[in-house]
């Protein structure tokens, strides 16, 4: 007997993966809406923690889904959520990669790419907004978010430095 919550996880993230145009960063508002608002699997604060853990670990940014699965149903939950997000779309990619090369230079392909680019930008910025609302609980936290965004925009520092410095400030109780 498969626990119903595992099936629920597979369904939610399997469906979500097909909406992930422009990467998992663009998917965060929708993950948040389903996991926090609809399913009630975690609180706003737990969602922010899951995001922090996934960012503090090496690897693709889709790992937030593994942490959510783990929170819901332990190791099996993590495995199911991760596979649900990867496998169905991988099969689709596998099938389409063969066809796509034939459309190289086709005007429709160019229009699709130029059309989808701004949609992705809107979604990623929405992710930033939703995450800030979940993660930042005061002016110091908002300030840290804003300072990181400004510095990351205007320098070429490795992203890990920002996380390391923030982690140290937070551990010392400064931020």
């Amino acid at each position: 007997m498969i626990p119903p919550v595992l099936i629920e996880l597979a369904e939610q993230f399997g469906l979500l993966s097909f909406l992930a145009i422009g990467g998992v960063n663009a998917l965060i508002p929708e993950i948040h809406r389903r996991v926090v608002d609809l399913e009630g699997w975690m609180t706003n604060a737990e969602f922010a923690q899951a995001f922090a853990i996934s960012q503090a670990s090496p690897g693709p940014n889709m790992l937030i889904v593994s942490v959510i699965g783990w929170k819901v149903f332990g190791f099996l939950g993590a495995l199911v959520a991760t596979l649900a997000l990867c496998v169905p779309t991988s099969v689709l990619t596998f099938a389409i990669a063969h066809v796509w090369d034939r459309f190289r230079g086709a005007p429709l392909r160019a229009a699709i790419q130029r059309g989808l680019a701004p949609v992705t930008v809107g979604l990623v910025l929405a992710s930033g907004y939703v995450l800030a609302r979940a993660a930042d609980d005061g002016w110091i936290a908002y300030g840290l978010t804003a300072a990181t965004a400004l510095l990351a925009l205007n320098t070429r520092w490795h992203p890990l430095w920002f996380l390391a410095v923030a982690g140290a400030l937070g551990a010392l109780g400064i931020a």
Binding site: V124, S127, G170
Partner: peptide, 26 residues
């Protein structure tokens, strides 16, 4: 408290990184 503080600050900074990515793409 140190672990909670560090995690909260890391998620604030990581949020800033997402915003920067969106603005760069824009």
């Amino acid at each position: 408290a140190a672990v909670r503080g560090a995690t909260a600050a890391v998620s604030s900074a990581a949020t800033g990184l997402v915003i920067a990515t969106g603005l760069k793409m824009a």
